[in-house]
Computed example of a mutant assay.
Amino acid sequence: MSNQPYGYEGHHGQQQGYDPYQQPQQPQQYPAQPQWQGYDESQAHAQQWETQQWQGQTWETQQWQGQTWETQVQPQAPVAPETAYLPQQTDHRPHEPQVQPEPLAEPRPGAEPGYGPPTLTGNARVTDAQRARAEGRSPIIEPGMQPALITAVLGLLLAGAAAVGEFALAVPLVILQAVTAAGWFRLNGMWPARQGIVLAFAGALAADAALFAAGREHAPAAILGTLGVWVLLAIVLGLRSHADPDERMYGLMATVASAALSIIATGYLAAVADAVVVGGVAVAVAIVARALPLPTAASVVVALLAAAGAGVAVGEVTDLGSSGALLGLAAALCALIGHRVAAYDYPSRFVHFTAGVALPLTAAAPAVYLLGRALG
């Protein structure tokens, strides 16, 4: 038997014995990559990093590194910065001539005025009235014959309804009050002003209702009381507005004036019926005569004389008699003032058919009421 330990093999492929004190075999060291001439420094660092990773990683890490190239992070191509210089594009197309806008033609003196869009505060451009003053022309445009005929029809309706009774008179009166409220706001360049128009018209209806409830003998208290309440209401609503102070004050004054005029028209309902008949006819005749193609002074004289004659004629039919001439003359004078106000500062056609129709009759209401009570 051999004196070698069990399991030991000889030099030529024989089994050697297991030595428990034998040191564990160190992993094989890979030689460093040779530094070739011209070898890139970045490649050298990458090779060194791979060597270190191979030495210090476990089997699992080696397995991860052994995956296919599709699971590895691919290097990204460098992205050009946003501020990179772009080559200038040269347009080789022939240049087309630019069409210059034609200048607007200046308005000729004496031509029909143009009306701009209505606003609350007015336009920044020069208005037609300012241009007319600068050129020495009058800013007054008369409403014309058509609004005068409508005023005459409405005046005759007031006269005929007054002869029938109070409730019949309320129908054309309400129409007059509505047109007055809308026409005053449009005359002041405030359109659309629905809240102000509705507020003024509501005050007129409230005055009519108060007069029906209180009776003609308490007409001043009903009219003035309603006017005071509506002025206070307009002030409260004006203070709640978020507009500029100037616009707020301008709107407040327009609302108060519109409500006052609409409420004053209730005087027809408070006046004596005969006075309303004479006054309505006198205003109708005076406004038609004023619209005749005559010089201003001549048309005013003709209108006043025609109103006085109509007052005498209608007064003979009623109980007023010859005193109807005075009432007709006073009503016509107030109507001409309202007609002049509706023609001021280049109003539009809509103003002519609202304020131009209603203001003559509305302005005559106090004279009809006061003289009717005095003469009757």
Rank of each mutant, 00 (worst) to 15 (best):
L336N: 05
G38N: 14
A289N: 11
Q100E: 11
L237K: 06
P293R: 09
G311M: 00
A303F: 03
A161M: 02
R290M: 00
W64M: 15
T180D: 05
T226D: 10
R137M: 04
P293K: 05
R340A: 15
L176Y: 05
V198S: 07
S42F: 07
A105E: 14
D345S: 08
P118K: 00
A257N: 13
Y369H: 09
A330W: 07
A161H: 10
E70R: 09
T318F: 01
A289V: 03
A343S: 12
A193M: 06
V285D: 08
L227T: 09
V236F: 08
A275D: 04
A213F: 04
A355N: 05
R131V: 06
V277N: 01
T354V: 01
G356F: 05
A219M: 06
P245Y: 06
F201L: 12
P360T: 11
P81K: 03
Q14A: 11
F353R: 12
L224K: 00
T119D: 09
V301L: 15
A303Q: 01
P143N: 13
E60A: 12
Q52P: 00
W59P: 08
Q4H: 08
P24C: 08
V312T: 11
D128M: 12
D40G: 10
V73D: 12
A170P: 04
G56F: 00
R125L: 15
G66D: 14
P27K: 13
L329E: 01
Y346W: 08
E70V: 06
D246W: 13
S258I: 03
E9D: 12
Y115N: 07
V164L: 11
I141L: 07
V301Y: 08
M1F: 09
D91C: 04
S2K: 02
Y30G: 12
R131F: 06
G189I: 01
P34N: 00
T90G: 02
G338P: 03
A358H: 07
A178E: 02
E135H: 05
L375V: 15
M253A: 09
A307P: 02
A168F: 08
A159P: 14
P101Q: 10
T318L: 07
Q22L: 12
H352D: 13
W54T: 04
H95F: 14
A374F: 15
A308Y: 04
H218C: 03
A310D: 10
E102V: 08
T68K: 01
Q67I: 05
Q52S: 10
D91M: 03
R248H: 06
L326I: 13
V73A: 11
L305K: 02
T296L: 13
P24S: 03
Q76A: 15
V314D: 04
